[in-house]
Simulated scan of single mutants.
Amino acid sequence: MGHWWARNIVEPGKLPLTLALFSFVLSFVIVRSIARLIRAGRGPFRNVTPGGMHIHHVVPGVVLVVIGGFGAVTSGRYGLGAAVCAVIFGAGAGLVLDEFALLLHLADVYWSDEGRKSVEIVVLTAALVGLVLGGFLPFGVNELSPQEARGRGLFAGDAALNFAFALIALSKGKPRTALIGAVVPFVALVGAVRLARPVSPWAKRFYRRRHRTRARAIRRAYRHDRRWAGPRRRLEEFIGGAPDPARTALPGGRDGGPPR
């Protein structure tokens, strides 16, 4: 365990990424906790509203991402400068992705049902970076040993095949599986061979005249959502807080019920 930790987490080349991940998670936890305290009216924290305009924390987050990103480009992977830029970049990314839903909808949906997308994207980002730290490479063929370099063509072919599986999973309406499958090949393969979601581009293209297959896809999607929607909602509320009850219903009645 100690050897794995030293090789994959604290070795000089991976230390900036490790610091960025820790800074990213810590900034998200801090800003989400402060937001929940402000919402509950507790503590000394208040919204920043100079001149009556609410300044969202995505604004300083973008500034930190720009500073940390450009600093990282000029400082390389080693040294104190790389470590400092990684911390700055991770903190800014945490602030930005905590309001990912606001950027997606171009509206203040932080405490609405749509705001759950921010929590989901933060969890996915942390998981993917953790997989990279653990030794998984997303379609990468860099830093090969001399023995591996001789099989570089085969390695690149495997990466291209896995990329194709990830694209298929994405077209089947499974973005989480596609993202994780971009790093873990077996996950992309599973997502590519399973039935598509009924409203996905794949289903619209290939299930249009296959009525039985489309019916199976609808039933499977409904059973999956009924089984996992509750646990996922409770986990997201535990991490990011429950949305405002007055704003949980989505337009068109998309907040529940079996598909038609």
Rank of each mutant, 00 (worst) to 15 (best):
M1V: 12
H3V: 14
W5A: 15
W5P: 04
A6K: 12
R7F: 14
N8F: 09
I9S: 08
P12L: 01
K14G: 03
L15S: 13
T18F: 14
T18Q: 04
L19C: 11
S23N: 00
F24W: 05
S27P: 06
I30L: 13
V31G: 11
S33A: 15
A40F: 01
A40C: 01
R42C: 03
G43V: 07
F45K: 11
V48G: 00
T49N: 13
G52I: 06
M53Y: 15
H54E: 09
H56P: 01
H56N: 03
H56M: 01
V58R: 07
V58I: 15
P60Y: 13
G61T: 05
V62H: 03
L64W: 02
V65K: 01
V65S: 07
V66F: 04
I67N: 08
G68W: 08
G69P: 03
F70N: 02
F70L: 15
F70D: 06
G76D: 06
R77F: 01
Y78A: 12
G79I: 13
L80P: 01
A82I: 00
A83F: 03
A83G: 00
V84T: 06
C85E: 01
A86P: 09
V87T: 13
I88D: 01
F89N: 09
A91G: 15
G92A: 12
G92D: 02
A93T: 10
L97A: 01
D98Q: 06
E99G: 05
A101P: 07
L104E: 14
S112Y: 07
S112P: 08
G115F: 15
R116F: 07
R116M: 04
E120K: 06
E120H: 14
I121G: 07
V122G: 05
V122Q: 09
V123K: 07
V123H: 04
A126R: 04
A126N: 06
V129W: 02
V129Q: 05
G130C: 10
L131C: 10
L133H: 09
G134N: 15
L137E: 15
P138D: 09
P138E: 10
E143G: 11
E143A: 12
Q147Y: 11
E148P: 10
G153Y: 02
F155K: 10
A156I: 12
D158A: 15
N162K: 00
F163L: 11
A164W: 13
A164C: 03
A166W: 08
L167F: 05
L167Q: 12
I168G: 08
A169I: 02
L170A: 13
G173N: 03
G173R: 08
R176W: 12
I180T: 07
V183F: 09
F186K: 05
L189W: 14
A192K: 08
R194F: 06
L195A: 13
L195S: 08
R197P: 00
V199F: 11
S200M: 05
W202L: 07
W202K: 00
W202S: 08
T213V: 07
R214I: 02
A215K: 10
R220A: 13
D225T: 05
R226P: 02
P231C: 07
R234G: 04
R234Q: 08
E236M: 12
G240L: 03
G241Y: 10
G241V: 06
P243N: 05
R247L: 13
G252R: 14
D255Y: 10
G257D: 13
